[in-house]
Design a binder for these strands. Structure first.
Lengths: 148, 148
DNA sequence: GCTATATACTTGATTAGTCAATTAATCATC
DNA sequence: GATGATTAATTGACTAATCAAGTATATAGC
C-alpha cells in the first residue's frame, strides 16, 4: 500500500470525528433535542423573522429537499417549528421558529457550548482559526457572530 | 440569541462539511465503491495480515457493532472482504481484505487522493497540520504513514 | 467447576436519509 | 398570453444506520 497524503487522511478521519461528535451531542443535549434538530433551530434563530425557505435550510445543512421535509415533520408535530406560506411565491413554504422552539434552543444552547468547548479546548485558538479558514474554503456561509 | 463560540460553530459546520465531502466521494470514486467501503478497505490494508476484528473495525470508523455487520454484508457478497474465525476466541470473527478488495482499493486510491487534494490545496500546510492536531485531540489513532 | 458478568456478533424493528417521480407554481420568450 | 423550462416541495421505494434483544463464548470469583 502506498503512503497516504495528509489531506486524504484528514478526510478519512473527518467522518469518524463527525460521527463521534454527533453521537456525543445526541446523548447529552437533553430535552429530546437531537444534533440535527439543534442545528436547524440555531440556523432559524439567526435569520431575520426567524424563518427560512425549506430549500435554503436544506442547503445550509447539506441535506436534500426531501431530507428537510422529513426532518422537519416531527419538529412541526411537536411544535418547535411552524409552516408559513409565501405571499410572493406559491411554491415556497417557510419554516418558522416557534416560541417553543426558541425556548428549547435556549436551553440546549448552554449544553451545546459546554460540549463543544470540552471537545476543542479554547487554548487551541490558532488551530481553531485555521480550522475556520479551511471551512471557508468550502464556501459555507456560517451564520451568526463569532466570539473569542 | 446569544453569540456563538468558535468551537460550537465549527461543530455545526462539521456535519455539513462532512456530508458535502462524503457525497463528492460517493459520486466520483467510481468502481461502485462508496466512501464507507473505501475507508474500510483502507483501514484493513494497514493492518498486519490485512485483517481486523469486526468490533475493532467498528470502533475505528465510529460505527456500532451492528452497523459494521450490515456494512460488511454486501462487501462480503461481492468478495471485497472475507470472513475468518479466530482460533483463540470463538466469539471473534475477523474481516480480511481479499485480493479483489486490494485491487479495488488500489484503483480507488488514486481517485481519492485526487479528490482530497482538490478539496484541501496543499498550499495550506500549516492549517492542515493544525487540523491533524485537532483530530489527535480526539485520540483517534489514524493508521498509515503521512507524507508531505 | 458453577455462577455471574462481560464481550463479540447477529437479528428485528425502527429512524434518517437518499434518489426518482410527481405536483404545482413561476419565469422566460416568442 | 401560450408554451417550455426551471424551481420548491412532497411522496414512494429504497439504503444505511441505530438500538434493544438474543445467542454464544470467555472470564472472574467463590
Amino acid at each position: 500500500m502506498k503512503s497516504i497524503s495528509k489531506q486524504l487522511k484528514i478526510f478519512l478521519n473527518l467522518a469518524t470525528v463527525q460521527a463521534h461528535i454527533e453521537r456525543s451531542f445526541n446523548i447529552g443535549l437533553g430535552n429530546g433535542v437531537g444534533f440535527n434538530d439543534f442545528v436547524i433551530l440555531y440556523h432559524l434563530s439567526q435569520e431575520s423573522g426567524q424563518k427560512m425557505r425549506r430549500i435554503d435550510l436544506a442547503e445550509k445543512v447539506s441535506l436534500s429537499a426531501s431530507g428537510i421535509t422529513r426532518l422537519l415533520l416531527p419538529m412541526e408535530k411537536i411544535g418547535l417549528v411552524s409552516r408559513e406560506e409565501s405571499k410572493n411565491d406559491g411554491r415556497v413554504s417557510f419554516v418558522k421558529l416557534t416560541p417553543a422552539g426558541n425556548r428549547l434552543l435556549e436551553e440546549a444552547f448552554e449544553n451545546a457550548e459546554y460540549k463543544a468547548k470540552a471537545f476543542l479546548p479554547s487554548t487551541d485558538i490558532r488551530a481553531l482559526n485555521d480550522l475556520s479558514e479551511i471551512f471557508n474554503l468550502f464556501s459555507f456561509k456560517p451564520s451568526g457572530q463569532i466570539i473569542s
